[in-house]
Amino acid sequence: MVVTVVKVVWAIAAIGVCVLVLLHSPKGDGLGALGGQAQLFTSTKSAEETLNRATWLLTIVFMALTVVLSGGWLTATP
């Protein structure tokens, strides 16, 4: 029962990380930086910081649950 719940949370975290990574704006300015147009269409800084924090949080949850599930610590019997 506990393993099933952890696997569901793990799968949701995996999908969430994928979605959040796709939502990030590209860091490279490309050729737009040459003319100074790169800063014209950037998003607000607070939205980017919130997106970064959410991405890191879900990444940590995903990695921690990956270690727990692969270690078999939840199915060990005393």
Rank of each mutant, 00 (worst) to 15 (best):
M1K: 13
M1N: 11
M1W: 12
V2F: 11
V2C: 12
T4K: 15
V5S: 14
V5L: 14
V5K: 15
V6K: 03
V6A: 10
V6E: 01
V8W: 11
V8T: 13
V9C: 11
V9W: 08
V9E: 07
V9Q: 05
W10L: 09
A11M: 12
A11D: 11
A11R: 14
I12V: 15
A13M: 11
A13F: 05
A14L: 14
I15K: 08
G16P: 04
G16L: 12
V17K: 04
C18W: 13
C18G: 15
C18P: 07
V19A: 11
V19M: 07
L20A: 13
V21A: 13
V21P: 01
L22A: 13
L23M: 15
L23D: 13
H24C: 15
S25D: 11
K27P: 09
D29F: 09
D29M: 07
G30Q: 01
G30T: 00
G30L: 02
L31K: 04
G32V: 03
G32T: 06
A33L: 08
L34F: 10
G35K: 03
G35D: 02
G36M: 04
G36C: 09
Q37S: 10
Q37K: 09
Q37P: 06
Q37G: 08
A38Y: 06
A38I: 00
A38V: 02
A38L: 04
A38T: 00
Q39G: 08
Q39C: 05
Q39N: 07
Q39R: 07
L40P: 01
L40Q: 05
T42P: 03
T42W: 04
S43F: 05
S43Q: 02
T44C: 09
T44Y: 05
T44P: 07
T44W: 09
K45E: 13
K45V: 14
S46G: 06
S46Y: 03
E48H: 15
E49M: 12
L51F: 00
L51M: 01
N52I: 13
R53C: 09
A54G: 12
A54Q: 02
T55E: 11
W56Y: 12
T59E: 00
T59M: 09
T59V: 10
I60K: 00
V61P: 01
F62A: 04
M63R: 03
M63Q: 10
A64R: 02
L65S: 02
L65T: 05
L65Y: 00
L65Q: 01
T66G: 11
V68A: 04
G71P: 00
G72I: 03
G72H: 04
W73G: 05
W73E: 05
L74T: 14
L74V: 14
T75E: 14
T75Y: 04
A76S: 07
A76I: 11
T77A: 01
T77H: 07
T77E: 03
T77M: 02
P78A: 08
P78H: 08
